[in-house]
Structures are given as C-alpha cells and as structure tokens.
Computed example of a mutant assay.
Amino acid sequence: MTVYIALDDTDMPDSPGTGRLARDLFSLLEHRYHLLGITRHQLYVHPDIPYTSHNSAAVIHVHAVPHEERDALFEEVAQFVQSRAAKGSDPGVCMTDHESVTPALILFGKEAKSTVLTQDQAITMASHTGVRLIGLDGTKGGIIGSLAAVGLAAGGSDGRYIQVGKIRTLQGQAEISAIHDAGIPAVYSLDGRSIDSGEVRFRKFPQPMRINHSPVLFVREDNESWIVERRD
C-alpha cells in the first residue's frame, strides 16, 4: 500500500526549491523504507495565490509503511521540513495512504490546478478524510498545495517524476535501453507509438510523466533522434 508524503511552499526566491527539499527527505528515509519515487505536481498560477516561482508541490511515494509507524513518521517529516524550510516560507505537509484517498480529495487536487482554494477548505477536507495535514510556519498556506498534491498523486495521472529509479544518473542524452534500465518502463511518441530504440536527448535528466501510476516518457522526433516532450 502506497503512502504519500507531500510538501509545499517550503522555499523562498533565494533558497533551494521544494523539490530539492523533497529529495533530501527522500535520502533520509530511503534507508528505512522502500521509496518508489518523487513526483512534482503543478498547481494553479494566479495573482491571488502566493508562490515562489512555479507553484508546484512535491510528493514522495513510499511503499508499505506499517500503521504503527505512521504517526512517528509524520512527526519526523514535519520536524525535518520545519527545520529545513526557508525562513519566510509558509510550509505545509500532508501524509496519507492510498486506500484513504477519497474521490473528493482527488477532485480537490484537480480543482487546485485551475481554482483558488482556501486553507479552510483544505482543513475541512482533511478532517473529513482523516488525512494527516499540518502547517508549519508563516501563513501555513502550504497546507493547500500539499493536500492537493496528495489527491493528484493518488489519482495516478498527474505530474512528472523528478526522482524514480536511476533517472538522475542520465545526463543530456541516452539510448532507449538505458532509459528503460534507469526506471522508465515506457517511452511513447506524441502520436501514440511505443518507441523501443534510438537515442533520446533531454535537458539535465529525463523527467517522465505519471500516467496510470507509472512513469511514461513522451518524446518527439528531431532528425534522426528523439527529444523529450516536457508537459506538466
């Protein structure tokens, strides 16, 4: 059973982003738990929503955390984020298991991509679903994005992976076979073809989309090779 740990609004313009903090937390936890990856989820960009750069949240996917350990794990995560979040940020943390995610929470996540939501709505949603949710500093506005990100991650077809397998060891370009070996099982062209051979070029490292709970890399043709198609 997957457990989702979501972080939002942990950074400031002159600090590392929430994705970086999520990777640091991943490194802390990976020696004790089976971690499946980290996904980035794009939320609504609107003048009424305070955000640092892109208004995205990060979710760590953890496999099978024993029930008796979950309260302690949530407290550990909250303490880690509070100690590492940038001064002046408004961090929020959310955690729940996949089976506890309701259709209403998935809808909350989808609405957060195109609607201005409030902390009161997030608190009410968390109280009705039993989701662990906490604001740690500042305005605590990060509770909205972290809760939404859990709903989006649980829905299975939103966001992209910023860490899964060994994707971060690939730099600039790689053969399809190496991409598979790194932890991306499927590569598709935009017109629906499964791409099984050839070279793919990308910026930094490949960041596959999350489709049906699995990493899928979309590419487009460029002369005799492929280029990663980036879409949030």
Rank of each mutant, 00 (worst) to 15 (best):
L25H: 10
A182V: 02
S146D: 09
S27M: 13
L152E: 06
H61R: 15
V200L: 13
R220F: 13
A58C: 14
I184V: 02
L217I: 07
V228Q: 11
Q119W: 01
M209T: 11
A104H: 08
D9Y: 09
I176D: 01
I134M: 08
G135E: 04
L21G: 05
T18V: 03
I60L: 15
G151S: 05
G172Y: 01
M12K: 14
E229F: 06
D181L: 08
A126I: 00
T18K: 05
K204D: 12
I106R: 12
G192E: 08
N212S: 13
Q207N: 13
V81P: 02
E69F: 09
V116R: 11
R84M: 08
D14W: 14
L21R: 07
R203C: 09
G159W: 00
F80K: 02
V77G: 03
D8T: 09
Q173K: 11
I134E: 04
T129M: 05
P208V: 01
P13E: 07
R132N: 10
A78Q: 06
S53H: 15
G192A: 09
R160T: 08
V62S: 12
S127R: 12
A186I: 15
I144N: 05
G145F: 04
A85K: 00
D191M: 06
S15Y: 08
P16C: 06
K140L: 04
F80S: 02
I143T: 07
G165H: 02
H180R: 15
A58H: 10
R84K: 12
D14Q: 14
H67T: 14
L73C: 11
G141P: 02
I227G: 05
E175S: 10
A112I: 01
H31M: 12
L7K: 06
D232V: 07
L147M: 11
V93D: 08
A149D: 04
S194M: 00
R201A: 05
E68A: 15
A57H: 07
I123E: 12
G145C: 07
G130S: 09
W226P: 07
G17P: 03
L21F: 07
E229N: 14
T52E: 13
V131E: 03
L170N: 03
P215M: 03
S100E: 04
R203F: 12
R160Y: 13
Q82C: 08
G151A: 05
L73R: 11
P47W: 11
E69Y: 11
T52L: 10
S177D: 11
S83I: 01
V228H: 06
Q82H: 12
H31K: 15
D120C: 05
I38T: 10
G145E: 04
I176R: 04
I143W: 06
A86P: 07
D9W: 07
T169K: 10
R220V: 12
V150S: 05
G138C: 07
I195R: 06
P47K: 12
Q119Y: 01
N223A: 13
D71C: 11
Y161Q: 04
A148I: 08
P66G: 06
R84E: 08
D24M: 13
S114R: 15
Y188C: 08
I38Q: 08
R20F: 14
D97W: 05
